[in-house]
Design a protein around this nucleic acid. Structure first.
Lengths: 117, 117
DNA sequence: CGTCTATGTTGACACATGTCGAACCAGCCG
DNA sequence: CGGCTGGTTCGACATGTGTCAACATAGACG
């Protein structure tokens, strides 16, 4: 049996606050993926739609009114999922997306702590 | 959920928390610019270098070691400036970039508040 | 099984973006 | 003035990215 080396509140899956020290190349690479995922208007609207939905979870059919075709919506949701910002689950006919709060909190901390210091 | 119309100290130059309601097209457009600016590894390293420097301010010559040519550095700094994340000032021979804390705080709030709810 | 609805995947294409070298501007200094 | 160093802008190019139509897949339901 193995011991879980946890204890970090998962609020730090990646990198230190941006003002603590210059990021290394790999840190920057990892972190940029998350920011890039939110760097598109359509994705931002999709993400916001999921986040503001009941229980931070929404069916694709509920959030598809963002002015682009259905394949494009699917494409963007996939990007958000690959970035770790959303997770998806199929329940019967519909697919539900939900936000990943820990990742969101980590990104927020990255910025907030850098702003206050 | 209750609304607190409290005095927000300029921590809201753009948009509500991502989970408050779906962003409008214009809100998403504006906000995406800021996230996109941090969505590149080189820019992230440059920004982090400035933010972690003495007084949140650094000369270009101090942060140019990110593995790309000097024109590329200049290009990225310009992008960060256009996104409102940095400001620049020439003092004699050198040009200094400094972080814009209020914008940073706003972005952080956007995420942090969405994560906690 | 067959069909219908809800999503995801593929291929193609236009456009945006990161990158560099070369040329260009702004102050210093001899 | 004339060159020197720090930085920006320009032009060009390769690659990445958003988008859609067409096709493919997954369950539901008869």
């Amino acid at each position: 049996m193995k011991v879980l080396p946890v204890l970090e509140p998962a609020t730090e899956p990646c990198c230190p606050p941006l003002n603590e020290r210059p990021l290394t190349a790999e840190e920057a690479e990892r972190t940029a993926v998350m920011f890039k995922a939110l760097g598109d208007p359509v994705r931002l609207r999709l993400f916001s739609s999921v986040a503001s939905h009941e229980g931070g979870e929404a069916c694709v059919c509920d959030i598809s009114d963002v002015g682009v075709s259905q394949p494009t919506v699917s494409h963007h949701l996939k990007k958000l999922k690959e970035a770790g910002l959303l997770s998806s689950e199929r329940r019967g006919t519909w697919v539900y997306y939900r936000v990943e709060p820990t990742v969101l909190a980590a990104m927020g901390a990255l910025l907030t702590r850098a702003a206050s210091a």
